[in-house]
Design a protein around this nucleic acid. Sequence first.
DNA 1: CGATGGATTGAGGTAGGTCAAATGGCGTGG
DNA 2: CCACGCCATTTGACCTACCTCAATCCATCG
Lengths: 165, 165
Amino acid sequence: MPGDFVDLHSFLVKVMDHAVMAVTPCTIGMVPHEALREITETHPHLTRLLAVNIVVDAAIHRQWLVSMGRRSALEHTAHLLCELLLRLRAVGLTTDDSFQLPLTQAELGDTLGLSTVHVNRVIQELRKEELITWHGDTVVIKDWPRLQGIAEFDPTFLSLKAEPR
Amino acid sequence: MPGDFVDLHSFLVKVMDHAVMAVTPCTIGMVPHEALREITETHPHLTRLLAVNIVVDAAIHRQWLVSMGRRSALEHTAHLLCELLLRLRAVGLTTDDSFQLPLTQAELGDTLGLSTVHVNRVIQELRKEELITWHGDTVVIKDWPRLQGIAEFDPTFLSLKAEPR
DNA sequence: CGATGGATTGAGGTAGGTCAAATGGCGTGG
DNA sequence: CCACGCCATTTGACCTACCTCAATCCATCG
C-alpha cells in the first residue's frame, strides 16, 4: 500500500520468516536500521508511532484470519475490497468509491487463497448483485453499504483515525 | 500462553477491535499504561523488547493465516500442536515431548475454525498414524519429525532464540 | 443409578477445487 | 489493416474436504 512502512519487523527480529514483494513497479525508500535505532533511543513518541504501525498490521492480520477461517469466498473478497477502499482513501488514492487494482484474477486468488476459477465466479456474483464494477484496473464500489454488510466489515481494526498522543 | 505479555495492543491503539479471554482459570498481572509509557520514555532497549513481542505475535498470526488458507485440517492441527509444544517448552511447561492441553475437541475446533466432528476425525487420524497420543488433558507428541513434516512446521517464526541487543 | 458432557460414528450436503476447453481483447509483425 | 499469438477471463463437468444433523457410546460424578 503506497506510503506504508513495510516490514518494520526486520528491525526487531533479525531472522526473517518471510519475504516482501511488490505487486507492481514502485518506488521504495530504505530506512537503515541504525536510523531506527537512533529514533528509539531519542524519540519515544515517534517510537510509539512505529509500534502503532506494527500493531495495526497485526490487527489486519487478525481480520484476514477471520476471513480465511469463517468467511465464504464472496464475503472474504468483499472484505478485501472494503479494506482496499478505505486504506487507499486514507492515502488519497481513491476517487469517490473507486480505485485502481492492478491485479489479475489469478493474483487476487493467490492473495485470497482461492482458485482462479472461483475468484472469477465470485467477481461475477459481485457484479451481478450490482455491488461492484471492475474493468481493467479500475474497481468501482457501487453499493458500499451492502458490500460492507456482506463482508461484515467493521473499519475499527484499521485504526485510521489519529490516535491521541 | 503462561508468561506471555498479552495484548500490548491496547496500550498503542485505544479503540480495540477484539477481546481477550483465558481458556482456563489463570493468574494475570495488570500493567498500567502509565507504566508502559514510562518505559517507552526512559528505557529504549526494553521498549524494543516489547515491540519484539508484538512482532512475534504478528509472525504467529501470519503462520495461522497460512494454516487457515493453505493447510488441510490435518496439517493445520499438526501445526498447532507443533507450535504449542515449542512455546510451552520455552516456558518450561513440557516434559519431554508432552504437555497439558486443557481443551475439549469442540474448543479445539473453535480455535482451528473446524467443526467438532471433523476435529475428532483429524485427531483419530493423528492417533492412528502414531503421531500423537491424547488422553484427558495430556498430549504426547510421539513422532515429532513426522508431525513437523506433515505440518510443514518451521520454528523460525517463533523467534525463540534470544535476539541480539 | 441417572444425568451430563465429551467423544465417536454414520449419512448426506455444499463450497470451493481441479482439469480442460472456449472465448475475447489487445499488441505486434507483416 | 489483418492475422496471429498471448493472456486473462469465462464456462462446464466432475471431485473432495469439510460441514451439518442426528444418533450413539462412554466416563464421570453427585
